[in-house]
Design a protein around this nucleic acid. Structure first.
Lengths: 146, 146
DNA sequence: TTAAACCCTAAACTATGGTTCATAGCAAAC
DNA sequence: GTTTGCTATGAACCATAGTTTAGGGTTTAA
């Protein structure tokens, strides 16, 4: 039964470059990681939980410095529970906003795709181009179409 | 009835800094924008539609160079309809992936928030800390909690 | 006709999130 | 015992997406 993990094993597990893990460590995101006598980072299984959380926050757009704040709160024990909750709650509203933006934009993209895929796409686009050309002409502006 | 728009009006409408619009122009995202005798950018109403699309693609994480590619396809008229559709279809799968990731991570964040907000949060965290401390001790690693 | 409020460009600068390189120590296998 | 592969550090480097600055022209309204 294996008990500790090298930086490479962690990198493989999380599909992260080793250089990124070192970078995160340098930025103070991994205060829970020990080093052995040779200076090698030694990871334990519980470190994986922290790193999973780091990835979760990173993948939802939290800046490195805020992740560091959160991790440091975690290292302070039970006294920081309320602060941690507030920090994550704030982040959650950001994520919800991202979801909304993504949803709305996806709708727009889908609409365009459908238009391009329609039987009548050429005529639709032609009439759009005609409209733009006419507007530009009326305003005495350059025609952007080649 | 107003017919043309200054860079400031466009910036206000899209809530973008003027410098960003100039930057996009420099990067080739705004080939449809004309300039007057004084060298000022002159926007027409139809330009707003293009810029809205640019914002949509940007807000869903498309890199500037790909947005430029798309806009350039648009400027080529009806011959590029298929390519435009393919480009957007590819992007749509990216957006769907982003949605999935966001959804999964949101769930994780929500779980943590609930844990922190629970009546029993202190005991839950205490037992987590105990587990980590014990694991580190068994492995002869440093205790990360202060 | 002049001040305030615009607009322009080029180039330097910033921030973020890494990656690469040079140099070197450690470890496992052969 | 030496080669191969892993690890380390610090510093330089890179990409992306802008922002700021310097220097200068234009427009508008009093």
């Amino acid at each position: 039964m294996k008990k500790t993990y090298s930086i490479k094993e962690v990198a493989d597990y999380f599909q992260l470059p080793i250089s990124t893990i070192r970078y995160y460590d340098k930025k103070g995101l991994l205060p829970f990681v020990s080093k052995n006598a040779a200076g090698y980072r030694v990871f334990s299984k519980s470190d994986f939980g922290f790193i999973k959380t780091i990835c979760c926050l990173k993948d939802t757009g939290m800046p490195i410095r805020d992740i560091r704040t959160y991790i440091n709160l975690c290292m302070q024990g039970t006294t920081s529970i309320q602060q941690r909750g507030e920090l994550l709650q704030q982040h959650k509203t950001n994520v919800l906003k991202q979801q909304q933006v993504l949803h709305d934009n996806l709708k727009e993209i889908t609409t365009k795709i459908q238009r391009y895929a329609s039987d009548d796409s050429v005529n639709i686009i032609k009439s759009q181009i005609k409209f733009v050309k006419n507007e530009k002409k009326v305003l005495n502006l350059e025609d952007p179409f080649k």
